[in-house]
Design a protein around this nucleic acid. Structure first.
Lengths: 184, 184
DNA sequence: CATAAATACTACCGATCGGTCGTTTGTAAA
DNA sequence: TTTACAAACGACCGATCGGTAGTATTTATG
């Protein structure tokens, strides 16, 4: 087993990120990992099965240690936002967003995986924020942070503008501290 | 000529919005407008040529009258943001964002059209904001507004959450007024 | 080294992709 | 009614799509 499953999933993520679900072909993936197309079906029953794996890997990488939530919420939140922003900046796009836009009702497994992915992101951020504000406010602050970071990938994709992502990361952190102060 | 060019472009926009550039086929488009695939090539030289037309139509629809910029900038800005938010809410997704993520270097005409589309949106918003703040600040406020509205489409696509879009529209308008007050 | 199980391979399937061909049809001017 | 032109058509092209069948090759185990 020269090529590991994680290598294939990581390559699939790159393709989904750059070309979307429909635009990325199994042949592309095979070439990228140095295998033949048929060999991919040893590890994955079909193309759609790649999506949950890709998103699970991304989630795992984005939050390397959930231990961070032990400390003060401000530190945890700053680390979480920074992690997401860094991930989006290095990848230049968000796989989740590309898949969210790209998968339809004909791929229900993929669609559900996308839901779970963003639901996880939301609740992860919201859980941190509850350390400094009531749940209801935390939910909206988390959602706002998420969509701003995701939206910032647009300017990276179109104008190669990475500055806005950094500014956005700082802005959402500031918003959180202000929301906490207002809720106190 | 029973089917007008604008009808085809509008149908193409719907397909690009829902399925992306790679996911939307000329056969889909033909079926949607009630023509045969070959007939589409009477009006458009190839698939890529649809992209500039789609984005131009969207831009035209988003800002029906540039006359709005004549009045006070707050009114114009609120109308502009409201127009964008309404457009994104009814379409459930942003064609521009889907295309920005979807088109690659193999379709340079489409890629350039996407650039121009978002550049137009940016400068349009920024131009309005210069009525109440210096250009430099207006640019960042406009960019921030744009990415927040675009990012809000994610929650519509994934969770069918239209509430966040409305909240975001109000938030970016408030941000603009505060930026103007701070710059005064 | 022999053997059995993974793993990767070649070759192929029907379907669909973007796009082109020559032909038929609708329509408006003469 | 004839003529002429654009619009729509059916049929087809090579390429690629996701996926499968059967075979060769590697790898771990005895």
């Amino acid at each position: 087993m020269k090529v590991t499953k994680d290598q294939i999933v990581a390559a699939a993520r790159q393709l989904f990120r750059e070309k979307g679900y429909a635009g990325a072909s199994m042949q592309d993936l095979a070439s990228l990992v140095g295998l033949r197309k048929a060999s991919l079906y040893m590890r994955f029953p079909n193309k759609e099965a790649l999506v949950p794996e890709v998103l699970a890997l991304t989630l795992r990488e984005t939050f390397p240690d959930a231990q961070l939530m032990a400390g003060p919420w401000q530190v945890a939140y700053e680390a979480a936002i920074g992690g997401i922003a860094a991930n989006l900046s290095t990848g230049k796009r968000c796989v989740g967003l590309h898949l969210a836009y790209g998968v339809g009702d004909d791929t229900p497994v993929a669609k559900e995986a996308v839901r779970e992915f963003f639901q996880s992101l939301r609740t992860f951020l919201s859980d941190i924020l509850t350390g400094g504000m009531p749940r209801e406010i935390a939910d909206t602050v988390a959602a706002d942070a998420l969509i701003r970071l995701e939206g910032a990938t647009l300017l990276i994709a179109v104008f190669d503008d990475t500055e806005t992502m950094q500014r956005t990361a700082r802005a959402v952190i500031k918003d959180a501290t202000e929301a906490a102060r207002a809720a106190r």
